[in-house]
Amino acid sequence: MAAISREEVAHLARLSRLAVTEEELDTLAGQLDVILQAVAQVGEVTAADIPPTSHSVPLTNVLRDDVVASCLTPEEALSGAPDAAEQRFRVPRILDEDVAS
């Protein structure tokens, strides 16, 4: 049985902001299926009581003093911008439903 459907791959592409083509979708579905079946092996390990590792260094409380450091100039900040206006980054119109918190 396939681990992932073509529809799921299309959904993942949307979530990932990738405008994949129809042909690409077919290729990706096949490849992701192979990879997912292989990586699903992690499920064979009995690990219910094992704590997950999110960081490989055992550090805690790495905190910075609240002291102002130098900023970029607006020119530097905008130097890589594909488009800018009024010293701001310009973007195309935002769809209403994109509004987030």
């Binding site: 910075r64 002291v67 450091a69 970029l72 900040a77 010293q87 980054f89």
Partner: peptide, 22 residues
């Protein structure tokens, strides 16, 4: 605070656009 959550840029209200960034 004097500075942002994760960098040393100042937090003052207002200011010309993109002058408090790193």
């Amino acid at each position: 605070t004097n500075t942002k959550m994760f960098c040393g840029c100042p937090t003052d209200f207002g200011g010309a656009p993109n002058t408090r960034v790193c």
